[in-house]
Each structure stands twice: as C-alpha cells, then as structure tokens.
C-alpha cells in the first residue's frame, strides 16, 4: 500500500500524566475508507489516544499525520465526536444550535451562520432521524437522541476522518442500528471512521479494521486477521478466554 493511502498515521506516540505513562510508543497506520474500532480494557488509554491524536492532550513524544501531512495542517479534514457525557446537557441551547456548531470551523472567527448553514443543519438532522427535535432544548433529550445530535454535528463538519468516542455508549437498540447504517454510508463516501468501542461482540459485525490497545498497541489491522483470540487474550490479560462461548466475559464493563 502506498504511503499516502493512509488516512491516519501515528508514529511513536507516547502520552504520560505526571507520574504514569498512559500510552507507550503507539504506531498506527489506518488506510482510508475503513471503519476502525479501538478496543481495550478500562484504563487502556483509548480515549487518551484519540485526544492525543487530536491535540487535546499534549503527547510526550510522537507524530500524527492525516493524509501524509501533520495534523495541525489537516485539522479541517478531521471531525470529532466526544463522549456524550463530556458536555453539559443543561446548557441553554437547542438541538439545531448544537448541530450548527459543527459548521463553526468552516465559518471561522466572528462570522455568523446563515440560512445556508441552517439548511445543511436540517439535512443532517434529517439523516439521523431527529429533524422534528430541531427546536428542542437539549436537556429534554434521551441518551440516544443526544448521541444522534452529536452525530449530526459530525456530519455537518463534512470531514474526511472522524474520531468518535464511544458513540454506542448507553443508546437504545434503534439508535445503535441507525448509527451503524450512518457509519457505513460515510464509509461508502470514502470517509475514514475511528471509533472507541466497548462491545467486543459487535466488532466483527460493525467494523472492518481494529486496533487492540492496552497502554501499548497489541495489534492493528483488518478485523479478520487481527481480532483473534490470542490478541484478545494479550489485550485483556486472559480475562477473555473464549470469544464466542462466553459472551458475558467479553464485556469489559464501562470506562470511568
């Protein structure tokens, strides 16, 4: 594969908080047009990895390239869907307004959104199936609806590479299916999607690429070669003994 086919390249990324190293020397090559899961046990550094890639946490060392160029120059190509719980849902604003925030990057400083931007926003709301909630105060949303708002916000960014932090966390089955369909649509458009994921049972079904992480990178590659019992055992330290027969063992629980 030629070098510039990689949507994301991470070289020797190390992140440390004062005392403890959180991520050791991560190398990743993610080809464009895949949906990739980042899986690993609690405290493995999954969220930290995407935050470090996005420059929200300063890494101790390492380099991040998006389509062969440093992240800082390619920022406009990147969309970010943080964990749902990372924001205050009692903030005095509406669904439409939150989704429109995804367009602020294109708008730049000081300029205000116009009717054109409202149209884009409504289109995205329609895609995630909550256009009827456009004027709703965000505190009145269910968990699944909140996640859809965040996805609509990512859609309007029209990014090439998306980073999503646990989009399936605490959503209902209908929303989960809707999200999966949406991710597949995005992939068809050639976008690359990197998802922090918890539910090992759905990895083979939802994703075509996977990175197994536990402070260091255990393995990364196409699901069919990488998502093996051996790699999982190494990642989860023997707690995942068998993949299909003991599903309850494969839910490492919830982060934080």
């Amino acid at each position: 594969m030629a070098e510039n086919d990689y949507a994301l390249e991470v070289n020797d990324l190390t992140v440390a908080y004062e005392h403890e190293p959180v991520l050791w020397d991560i190398d990743l090559d993610v080809p464009s047009g895949v949906i990739m899961a980042i899986v690993g046990p609690n405290g493995a550094g999954k969220t930290t990895l995407i935050k470090a890639i996005l420059g929200l946490i300063e890494p101790a060392a390492g380099q991040v390239l998006i389509f062969d160029q440093p992240y800082n120059e390619q920022r406009h190509l990147v969309g970010y869907v943080p964990q749902r719980r990372s924001v205050d849902w009692d903030f005095p604003t509406t669904v439409e307004d939150v989704v429109m925030m995804g367009l602020y990057g294109q708008l730049g400083w000081i300029k205000r959104p116009t009717r054109h931007h409202r149209a884009i926003t409504h289109e995205a709301l329609e895609k995630v199936g909550i256009v009827n909630l456009a004027d709703r105060q965000i505190s009145q949303l269910s968990g699944g609806q909140q996640q859809r708002v965040f996805l609509a916000r990512a859609l309007v960014q029209d990014a090439q590479v998306y980073f999503m932090d646990e989009p399936f966390q605490g959503v209902d089955a209908t929303t989960e299916r809707a999200i999966v369909t949406l991710l597949q649509e995005l992939r068809q458009q050639g976008k690359t999607i990197i998802v922090v994921h918890h539910d090992l049972q759905t990895v083979t079904e939802y994703f075509d690429w996977v990175t197994l992480l536990n402070v260091r990178k255990i393995a990364s590659g196409p699901v069919e070669w990488t998502f093996t019992a051996e790699n999982l055992r190494e990642t989860y330290g023997g707690r995942v003994s068998f993949l299909k027969s003991q599903p309850e063992m494969m839910q490492p629980g919830q982060e934080q």
Binding site: G55, P82, S86, V87, T93
Partner: peptide, 8 residues
Amino acid sequence: FDAGLAAT
C-alpha cells in the same frame, strides 16, 4: 459548551 470541539 464543548471546549474539546472548540479546540479541534
């Protein structure tokens, strides 16, 4: 509302 998104 969302400092993380603002930063990215």
